[in-house]
Design a protein around this nucleic acid. Sequence first.
DNA 1: TTGAAAGCGATACCAG
DNA 2: CTGGTATCGCTTTCAA
Lengths: 371, 371
Amino acid sequence: MNQKIRLLDIAEALGVSTGTVHRALHNHDGVNPMTKARVQQMAKTLGYRPNLAARYLSSKRNLRISVNTLQGTTSFWDDVRAGISEEARGLVMENVEIEYRTYPRLGEGEEEAFDAALKAEVDGIITFPSRPRSLHSWMRRASRNGVPVVCVATDAPHTGRLAVVSIDTLASGSLAADLMGSLLRGTGKVAVTLSALAITEHEEKYKAFESTMRKLYPQVRIEAPIEDHDVESEAYEKCRKLFNSHPDLAGVYVTTEASIPVLNAARDTQMLDQMTVITTDLFPALVPEIRSRAVAATIYQRPRTQGRMAFRVLHEFLVDGECPSFQVTLAPHLVMRGNLDFFLQRQSLESNAERGVKAQGASPELAEYFG
Amino acid sequence: MNQKIRLLDIAEALGVSTGTVHRALHNHDGVNPMTKARVQQMAKTLGYRPNLAARYLSSKRNLRISVNTLQGTTSFWDDVRAGISEEARGLVMENVEIEYRTYPRLGEGEEEAFDAALKAEVDGIITFPSRPRSLHSWMRRASRNGVPVVCVATDAPHTGRLAVVSIDTLASGSLAADLMGSLLRGTGKVAVTLSALAITEHEEKYKAFESTMRKLYPQVRIEAPIEDHDVESEAYEKCRKLFNSHPDLAGVYVTTEASIPVLNAARDTQMLDQMTVITTDLFPALVPEIRSRAVAATIYQRPRTQGRMAFRVLHEFLVDGECPSFQVTLAPHLVMRGNLDFFLQRQSLESNAERGVKAQGASPELAEYFG
DNA sequence: TTGAAAGCGATACCAG
DNA sequence: CTGGTATCGCTTTCAA
């Protein structure tokens, strides 16, 4: 609103030096509590906004952030990490170091990774809270220590986390229901598979699917959800059993990345052709299934974008203390055979983006573009 | 790759001053062509990258960019402009001025707006080339004058434009075809409406729709496309005629924002119920049509994101001379009744974003968040 | 606990 | 045509 207020302006208004003002604003120690209060007050009334250019120029500090994520069985988490590092690379002016701490399975090594990150005194953490319960105390400790934590893919409520970046589960489940309903012409029996109802994300998807279906296609009947606990064999066995006991099943909605075992079970029970299958995520093994129409559509959760946004939010907070948004919710993309190629092409393009863009990008300072 | 090379490094390597290096790299006049060449060569071999922080700090220049777009009959262009200004506001460090030059109708006042922007000596232009032909010479002139031009929504080939930001037309048309085909269970007669086949964007959508349909659902028959030339009454009349002469029509794909007249024609001929209608864009008047399932789905072209990306590309180029990508192609979003609320909610959220985020955003310098 | 001052790297202006 | 230098706002010593 006002003109640009500098450190010097605050200093002069108070008859102190810029050094003092700086220390006061940054809660550095060795400042008289009295003067610190006066400085902070004055900064607020003058509407001080730091000049980031000057900040970067003079500071040689580099940010370190820890990315604690799952190894994963598909490319989902690789893509999330790719999105993070792309966004970090894009920060021309700064040097941000990213430390990846990857754990092999749900909840396995998760706490250790968090511990390690805190011990390493990173400036911020991006994490996938696969077991919010067990992570709870760790996250609270982080926020007490002033280390902001951003959750990706799923939330960890009441943990003091700075922000969460995720796909809108409501939109995902409802879209799946609407599509399934219309493809089935409003009638039939369908099933839903998920990891565990205890996971907020999956529960929300299931509820959204169920309520949308009931509202828009009341004739469609939904069977009790299948919990696979992220174990492929469990998904296969349970589905196989379900299919055998429901030979008239017309559709399945797989809310997790574990769609391959479900497809196999359907194939092995000779029920694939009669079913409309809607899956989640997009990874190599799923491509031929979409091409052959075994899968009618898949709900793409935009892992790269999730990674990018998580990094952006965290970085912005670290850099100027403002969190652009505490909750970033992305719209899922619907991928069908018709637009599959677009996504595949884009995926491969993005992984080559670094070279590609540099190669065809204009040279420094307009020169080449207008040459 | 190497350490950070500064102006001073290349100056010392050549035994000249930083002032000379600066002038040489920026093609300022008053530099011996010989030394200019040596400087530029040295800069390249050392791999010089300007330090943007230092640049912003010392330069008090502010960028001015002109946004030349259509008024529009729906909220599409308002959203594009909103995306641009949001992104501009996000640039904390700089002061970027945006001048909007809006013209009322396709091709009407477009050239005048371009002329005005050039006369005003803006640093860059974002434009919707509604009549690429007539804009051709203007755009070439701009690029000759060193004024980069970014096209939104549709491309203007061979004009020397810096970049284009648009929705993937192929993905749009193919997705519409795949969805239409599966909703019709692979059989029936469908029609497509568009503004004019002469517009690249519409031609591409039509072709993608047509070829995907032929490949995936060969039994579906596509009638000759309807051209409405962006005139609502023409759309209505032509559709009405079409519907009367094809009482068995099972679906319509509207590739433009002019879906309301098409729906009215279908309603007036009592054929709405029997048809699967897929539209384009999302605006208030379309909402009840989606709710009532008159429209099965609409292809959302993400106007805000298009605006944001256009601004980002242009800004990045102006700021460090590199164009991150000459062609930004976005995936369209599919909106059905099931996920409609998500998009509506997001739209209203985004328009309040400025206040909302500031209000709940953390205060400067971590303080409040951890308080 | 505080002040004074030396950078950070690019820009722009004034002398020569 | 070119060199020298003050300047931008903040961070970070080093003295006091």
